[in-house]
Design a protein around this nucleic acid. Sequence first.
DNA 1: TATTGTTATACTCTATAACTATA
DNA 2: TATAGTTATAGAGTATAACAATA
Lengths: 167, 167
Amino acid sequence: MTLDDAHLRAGSAADAAGAPAPDTANADVGTLAARLRIGVTRLARLMRRQGDTGLSPSQISALTSVELHGPMTLGALAEHERVAPPSITKVVAKLEERELVARRADPADRRAVRITATPAGRALLAEVRQRKDLWLAARLAELDDDQRARLAAALDVIDALTGRVAP
Amino acid sequence: MTLDDAHLRAGSAADAAGAPAPDTANADVGTLAARLRIGVTRLARLMRRQGDTGLSPSQISALTSVELHGPMTLGALAEHERVAPPSITKVVAKLEERELVARRADPADRRAVRITATPAGRALLAEVRQRKDLWLAARLAELDDDQRARLAAALDVIDALTGRVAP
DNA sequence: TATTGTTATACTCTATAACTATA
DNA sequence: TATAGTTATAGAGTATAACAATA
């Protein structure tokens, strides 16, 4: 782990006239990666701390998937959550106890069950997201205009990084 | 989610002579927060997938803390990990089995034990970080120069966001 | 007595194997 | 016979309570 922040920020690398790697930012993709990893990991951890729900991680994750991907069978949900079928049965049972999801028999295939998020389930997710956003907005408000502008200018890059990736 | 990237990227900061709410980027700190939350959450998840170790999350986290904060007592480690003392006893026992950490009796206080990361433990952490960095560097290599430059320009903002935060 | 760490025990989470009911 | 989901059971992980050794 040999990070050289000053090097990254300063002129560095192939500034020298028509060099092929033109920009300070391209000085070292590996170094950029390491710094981004550290920053993103820390920020994600701090955000996670704001998101306490009383639900287990699998429960929150399953609820999020159900909200996002609409009515799902238990099998599809298990696959999406990378979890064994008996596990999803229990996770969904817990969520159902709290009335955060609802089950509906599939009319075409009587073996299958469709899971949907209830209004309470959606409200809970919205509340957690809002709590994280409020925390983050408070941190952003402490920055200066230039910092916020630079962050805003990088948002679509982060989207590009996550959107077209081979998982 | 109504962000206008082009708008954000353009004029930036308080171009318009001394306007009080000057910047497109500040148009809505809440919107900025929401987009940042989504991007960071996704990117962190994708990175986490590259970091499989065979260790449980608590084991990795404890090992990381020990590496970072030097020789620690079990009590200090438990506190740092926000975990009960008996739990840390077991976590450390597992790490010790694999020779990723070592115990050393405190010479001054014979009740206490100091935990340190072994070379193997440090190597394992380095390998995981490298795997994540390689994955991330490959993604970064797919971006264009302008995107990398904007990302690099935002790195210190992310640091500011995580560094001086009240947890 | 107070503190450091461990052992005893219980609960949650998740997995594999075996089962039920449909298809 | 194959598929969707459940029940039975076992193995991690973590917690509280009770204990041992040392301060």
